[in-house]
């Protein structure tokens, strides 16, 4: 049973009530059909209103859900013959990022993504999906390999952020991220990025410079976690909910800001309710995106990426400029 999310409580309570009435009806042999029908209609209305007007904080909860499908889940549903490839050839293998080669339908591709664990033990092994520099360097190695063999690259983004630790700093966390941004800009093959859970800051972006960037409906993408933003802005991490609302981190926000291309619809209540169906919904968008990119030349792909990022930002001009002497 999925952990209960706070905003879903009224739904769960109503569901419980209906179940109780049903068993009561069976036990006592009293006809409560009308009452149940009425409640079921109410439930359906409640579900619709809850899931169609989700608040940013609700989406944050879904994006972080322990049972939310991960990179390996989507690889399992959408690709065949996946062979995982390990290591950055420099230091080690970071299991917070997985990557490898596979077929997408009949097309050879390289797939890379952040990987959270499904339980505590796996989370420790995968460092809760928070990569060290060797993770980003592995990803880059696989991207360059994909480029050499002219394979499209698909990146799944799902991380709270790059790991903030001593070893990470010593081995050049900044450089590893920065290098990926620059190198991804120049890849001569199609790159499609999909934010499937949390897109946490530079650690997410390091797999995120693509020709298309899509987001699952309930995923988030932000410069800092809502908790971090609250701590900095109001010196109070408990104001995370407020920060989530003002930071504009949801898929509809990013679409409006002109940063992402498509919002991938989620199954009602979130991807964790039906991972297989969710993969199908993603499949449609992936296929369309790949079709569009496969017809482009190497130069067109690089230029398209350039234009895509060049236009992100909002600024104005003043007439009486102050000139530096």
């Amino acid at each position: 049973m999925a952990a209960e999310l706070e905003f879903e409580k009224p739904i769960h309570e109503l569901e419980k009530k209906i179940a109780e009435l049903k068993s009561f009806m069976d036990e006592k042999d009293i006809d409560l059909t009308d009452e149940i029908k009425r409640l079921e209609e109410k439930l359906s209305r409640l579900e619709n209103s809850t899931y169609s007007e989700m608040k940013p904080w609700d989406r944050v909860q879904i994006a972080r859900h322990a049972e939310r499908p991960t990179t390996l889940d989507y690889i399992n549903y959408l690709f065949t013959d996946f062979i995982e490839l390990h290591g950055d050839r420099l230091f080690g293998d970071d299991e917070a990022i997985v990557g490898g080669v596979a077929f997408y339908k009949d097309l050879p591709v390289t797939v890379i993504g952040h990987q959270r664990g499904k339980d505590t033990k796996e989370n420790l092994r995968r460092n809760f999906g928070m990569p060290h520099p060797e993770g980003y360097r592995k990803a880059l190695r696989l991207m360059k390999q994909a480029e050499k063999f002219n394979r499209p690259i698909i990146c799944f983004i799902d991380t709270k952020g790059a790991f903030p630790g001593k070893a990470a700093e010593e081995r050049g966390q900044s450089e590893a991220i920065a290098r990926n941004l620059v190198e991804m800009a120049g890849l001569t093959v199609p790159v499609i990025c999909v934010v499937i859970g949390e897109g946490g800051s530079g650690g997410a972006l390091a797999l995120g410079v693509g020709n298309y960037v899509h987001m699952l409906e309930n995923s988030t993408y932000s410069v800092i976690s809502p908790e971090g933003a609250a701590a900095i802005l109001w010196k109070d991490a408990s104001l995370a909910k407020k920060a989530a609302e003002s930071m504009r981190i949801t898929a509809p926000d990013l679409k409006e800001l002109g940063i992402i291309d498509e919002i991938i619809e989620e199954v009602k209540g979130g991807a964790h309710k039906d991972a297989k169906r969710q993969a199908e919904l993603m499949d449609e968008v992936l296929e369309t995106s790949l079709d569009a990119l496969l017809s482009m030349s190497q130069e067109e792909l690089i230029n398209q990426r350039y234009e895509k990022y060049k236009k992100i930002g909002q600024f104005g001009f003043v007439n009486d400029s102050i000139v530096v002497k």
Partner: peptide
């Protein structure tokens, strides 16, 4: 400037 700031990292990189 939220995620618009984050994206400046990508913009300068391209």
């Amino acid at each position: 400037e939220g995620v618009l700031s984050l994206m400046q990292m990508a913009k300068t990189s391209v």
